[in-house]
């Protein structure tokens, strides 16, 4: 297993209830996982815990052979080798597309940087937009730049926080297909959170359904959605035996 999350728990300061309760998950290398849940279910918090932007109250996170977090250790986000595409993309407004992508390549040589920028821009089909500033791009283009920027340093794991929430419906369908193609071509392990079951179904190899900070269901899109009862009904039923956790 490439990623191993065990007994993860978290609560925000001052909150009475735990936001994440006893979360367990293992992920294979190159797998695309979707964490699906309603607002407030804790799905973005899990992403932030994996990224190192929050510190869990208990539990372990292993990426490859490296322990990112346990009761005695905590690796800072910048040292985890994990990439993230934010919900609002968080492209640095004072930098061009090229500068945004180069930002994560600080330890690379100038030649390598140039080469890598061209590679990832080609991957997301934005070769002609190198010198543009983020505000000069459409929503879809910004999203692709954010993806290129996150992919550029060749992260071990890529995280997406509601990647399609700022896109209109047509673009959303096109981009998620393109995203799956890109992710599969690079072979990067990915986790994305969404509240949209169509996104999960189209993109993910496996889906984690989250309810009130706990795993309510886990399986392939077919296993999750392939039955007659609706998704909302399934959310209401008790968790199945999570054989693959």
């Amino acid at each position: 297993m490439f990623i191993h999350i065990r007994n993860l728990a978290f609560n925000y300061q001052g909150a009475d209830e735990q936001t994440i309760k006893d979360f367990n998950l293992t992920i294979d290398q190159g797998e695309i996982i979707s964490i699906l849940g309603e607002s407030g279910s804790g799905k973005s918090t899990i992403l932030r815990l994996i990224a190192g932007l929050e510190m869990p109250t208990s539990g372990n996170i292993m990426v490859g052979d490296h322990c990112m977090c346990s009761n005695s250790t905590f690796t800072q986000p910048e040292k985890r080798g994990v990439g993230m595409v934010f919900q609002d993309y968080a492209l640095f407004p004072h930098m061009t597309v090229e500068e945004n992508i180069k930002f994560g390549l600080q330890k690379w040589s100038r030649k390598e940087k140039k080469q890598r920028v061209l590679e990832v821009l080609e991957l997301v089909n934005l070769q002609d937009y190198r010198k543009r500033y983020p505000f000069e791009l459409s929503g879809g283009q910004q999203q692709r730049v954010a993806l290129a920027r996150a992919l550029a340093p060749k992260p071990k794991l890529l995280l997406f926080d509601e990647p399609f929430s700022n896109l209109d419906a047509d673009l959303q369908i096109r981009i998620r297909e393109e995203l799956r193609r890109i992710l599969k071509s690079t072979g990067v392990t990915s986790i994305f959170v969404t509240h949209d079951q169509d996104d999960s179904q189209a993109l993910a190899d496996r889906i984690v359904v989250l309810r009130s900070g706990e795993i309510a269901d886990l399986g392939t899109p077919n296993e999750i959605f392939g039955t007659d009862c609706s998704f909302s009904e399934r959310l209401a039923v008790k968790p199945r035996v999570l054989s693959r956790v």
Binding site: P77, E78, A90, R149, A150
Partner: peptide
């Protein structure tokens, strides 16, 4: 805090993120 977090996810420390991103914004 999104820009800072994005910068840290790209390998910059808090201090470098401040000088390269936050301060300019």
């Amino acid at each position: 805090t999104n820009f800072t977090e994005a910068s840290r996810m790209l390998g910059m420390s808090v201090t470098k993120s401040f000088f390269k991103v936050d301060m300019k914004l």
